[in-house]
Amino acid sequence: MLAIKTEGLSKYFNNKKAVEDLNLQVPEGVIFGYLGPNGAGKTTTIRLLLSLAKPTKGRAYILGENISKSRNYLKKIGFLPEVPSFYNFFTAKEFLNFISDISGMVKPNKKIEEMLQLVELNKEKKRIGTYSRGMKQRLGIAQAILSDPPLLILDEPTSALDPEGRKETLDLIASFKGQKTVFFSTHILGDVEKICDMVGIIKEGRLVLNDSIENLKKSHSKRTLFIEVDKPKKLMETLQYLNWVEEMSPVNKNGIILQVKDLQFAQKSLPEILSKENILLNKWELKEPTLEDIFLEVVHNGN
C-alpha cells in the first residue's frame, strides 16, 4: 500500500500556482526526501496533506484514506512544522504532557522522559518561550514521534540544527527505515543522499521527479565519462563533430568530461577513435553522479 498518494493535487493562491497537478507516490516504510528550491511548493504540499489548506483541485490518499472524507487519518501522522511554534508558557515536559493527553496516550510518562532524553531537552526546566530555534526544532521532533505514529511528515527537520544535531536527527530518521514512513522536505541534498530510499523533486509547483535513489542514479548517470589522454585538444577536435557526444568539457591538464547519448556505443567507439588518431589513453572512468548533479540537472532542464 502507498502511505501517500496524490492525484492531480493542485493549490492556487489567486493566480499563483503553488502546487500544480501533483502525482506523488510514497510507498509504506520508505524514507522519502522531498526536494525543491525555495518557493517550489514543498510547504504547500505538506499543508494540503495535513488538511491545513484546501486543494483547488485533485485528491490525496493517506494510508489508504481519502483525506477529504474525514480528518481521522491525522491521528496516524506525526508532523513537524517548518517553523515550530509551541505554547511558550509550557516547559518541554509540560508541552509533551499536553500532546500525550490530546493524542489519547495512556501512561505516557516513561515515553515522555525517553523523548526528552532523545532530543536532549531532559534537563531543560525553562519555558519554551526562552528556547533557541534549534531547541524548538528538537522539541518539534519529539512531539512528532511521541505517540509513535506510522507516518511522519517533517518540513525541513534539520534546517535550524547545528552539525551534531543534524547528524543525530538524520540518524534518528534513518532508524525508522522499514518501520515508519517518513516524508520530509529539505533543500539539503546531502541529507537526502545519506538517508533516503526515494526522492521527489518539485519545481515551480510541479513534480519533476518521483523515484527511488537507486533508479535515479542508474538512469541519470552512467552517461558521464571522465578520460585522460596525452593529446586532449586533438581528441576534442575529433569528438566535437560526432553526434553521440552531447557535451564535453576539459578538466585539469589532460582530462575531459564527456556526456554521451549512449554509453555502450561510446565504450565501443572511443577506443577506435583513439587508436585511429594515435592518442594514448591514460585514464578511463565512469562518473557516478551525485544527487546534486541530478538535482541541478532536473531543476535546470525540466527533466
Partner: peptide
C-alpha cells in the same frame, strides 16, 4: 497567528 492552532489541528483534534 502564532502557529499553535495548526499544530493542534494537524494532530487530528476536531
Amino acid at each position: 497567528n502564532h502557529g499553535t492552532a495548526s499544530l493542534v489541528a494537524a494532530k487530528g483534534i476536531d
